[in-house]
Simulated scan of single mutants.
Amino acid sequence: MKAVELHSFTKDGLVLAERAEPAVGPHEVKVRVRAVSLNYRDHMVTSGMYGIPAEALPLVPVSDGAGEVVAVGAAVTRFKVGDRVTSMMTRDFISGELTPERQAAQNGGPLDGMLQEYAVLPEHALVAFPSHLSYEEAATLPIAALTAWNALTEGGAAPGRTVLLQGTGGVSLAALQLAKLFGARVIITTSKEERRARLLELGADVVLNYKTSPDLAGEILAATDGRGVDMVIEVTGLSGMQTSLSVLRLGGYIGFVGLLAGMGDAPDFTLPLLFKNARIRGVLTGSRDMYEDMLRAIGQHQLKPIVGEVFALADFQRAFERYQSSAVFGKVVIRLD
């Protein structure tokens, strides 16, 4: 079978290789992978930023994928041949709190991921997805959408509450769609004016251009009549925390989900955090229970994730380049036909 392997943390470290099809153990499921989607985590893994040692290479990257069950182990009870399923990034995070043991078993590094024609996973590490979704759409959900769902539910997204979203990356677009399911009001920022109309079509109540705005914080506060937003889904990293805290209402919530602006020195925001009586919580995807709750909501409302561009397996390098360019509105997907 064909698989993309990561051999080094360099520009040419990804290689299309041939592997033997994996065998299925008693509690395992073999999936014919039909599509995968790219996330910032995959960039971190392939560039060496994720902390995976070189001794762990080669490995199959990309945590998020969807496909069809083609074989099941003798003791499998959750799935049958023909079921359509997606992976999860944290394979063993079923419910409850995230423990070090549950966090360690991660798809796409250090464990082999989904950028291969066949993947064998424990039955507990797979979830069936709604019938109205294509493989490409379902492949976008395990990290971006689940992270957004986790942050929104923890923050109490509901009618009458205002959510601030930053940019138009995978988590922010998923959070926009899901926040509207909860009935929340959404303010979203972008640096690309041509995306304004699309964001409004998706349900955004206020769209602000952070590149051209002379006073972004002032505009956000004005959009809330000076009260501030109820929650921020923080994707930029610590460098953006001062701005996020400045537009947060007293007692508001910040779901810290990403570090797109990098991991450099951050300003001291101790006093704003204290005086706002704010809650800040790191969000690393979510449990299988959360994922299944989200998928039920997606199925009930017939929600369709935003797929930006789709590439063939042979063009996987181009897919990674397009993802890293930030030029694609919606998720970058690779099909494995």
Rank of each mutant, 00 (worst) to 15 (best):
residue 104 A to D: 00
residue 47 S to V: 04
residue 254 I to V: 15
residue 48 G to H: 05
residue 56 A to Y: 05
residue 46 T to E: 08
residue 323 Y to R: 03
residue 327 A to E: 09
residue 291 Y to L: 09
residue 67 G to P: 07
residue 21 E to Q: 15
residue 316 F to T: 02
residue 336 L to V: 04
residue 57 L to G: 04
residue 304 K to D: 00
residue 242 Q to Y: 00
residue 66 A to N: 08
residue 120 V to M: 03
residue 42 D to C: 11
residue 295 L to Y: 00
residue 102 R to G: 03
residue 10 T to C: 02
residue 89 M to R: 11
residue 283 V to L: 13
residue 156 G to W: 13
residue 53 P to W: 14
residue 160 G to C: 06
residue 276 K to F: 01
residue 314 A to M: 06
residue 207 V to H: 03
residue 227 R to D: 02
residue 254 I to E: 05
residue 218 G to P: 10
residue 301 H to E: 08
residue 13 G to K: 12
residue 317 Q to R: 11
residue 150 N to Q: 12
residue 29 V to T: 04
residue 56 A to S: 14
residue 266 A to K: 12
residue 24 V to F: 02
residue 236 T to S: 11
residue 61 P to S: 09
residue 139 A to H: 07
residue 19 R to L: 05
residue 204 A to K: 15
residue 336 L to H: 00
residue 146 L to S: 07
residue 265 D to G: 13
residue 111 L to M: 10
residue 25 G to S: 11
residue 294 M to A: 12
residue 37 S to I: 01
residue 102 R to K: 10
residue 168 T to S: 09
residue 100 P to F: 08
residue 281 R to G: 09
residue 316 F to S: 12
residue 22 P to S: 01
residue 331 K to D: 07
residue 89 M to P: 00
residue 86 T to M: 15
residue 213 S to P: 04
residue 197 A to R: 14
residue 43 H to T: 12
residue 204 A to L: 15
residue 161 R to Q: 12
residue 170 G to W: 08
residue 39 N to P: 06
residue 174 A to T: 06
residue 115 L to Y: 04
residue 244 S to T: 03
residue 175 A to G: 14
residue 32 R to G: 06
residue 28 E to N: 01
residue 69 V to K: 09
residue 243 T to I: 02
